[in-house]
Amino acid sequence: MEESPISPSRRRFFLSILLAGIGAMLAAVALWPLWRYLSPPAGSGKEEKMAMARNLVPVGGAHFFQFNGHPAVLLQNSPGSFLAFSAVCTHLGCIIQWQPEKGEFLCPCHAGRFSSTGAVLAGPPPKPLESIPVTLSGDQVLVG
């Protein structure tokens, strides 16, 4: 093959530019799914309602369940009166425990205490428990 009008090095230059372009595109195409895969889900707190049988919760007792991917608790402080809260302590995020004999919540991490209405009684929690709306519907309790 004799000398072609465009020298190999010039061809190589343009081909390399093209290849670099394609390479950049491929890198972007690879990085985008990687970013999305690693990112935490954008708050699965859609307006999801949950229905539960009201007799799951004894009067003066508490029932723990999962709501929108987080632990939550349903209380029946007096007959027919229901409250629901997120069971995540507002201090540093530990999960609170119910103390039936005292009728209040205790956080096992730093002894934060919440009342049966979610208010802070003692300890480091800065805010009351996050409240979840509750409605009664026959023998069902609708949470959310």
């Binding site: 093959m1 090095s9 061809r11 081909l15 290849l19 394609i22 390479g23 595109m25 491929l26």
Partner: peptide, 19 residues
Amino acid sequence: LLVVAGLLAAFIRRTYHEE
């Protein structure tokens, strides 16, 4: 894109081969 990239690399190789 991958096929095109492969072809470009192959052509680049060929320019070296000629030299």
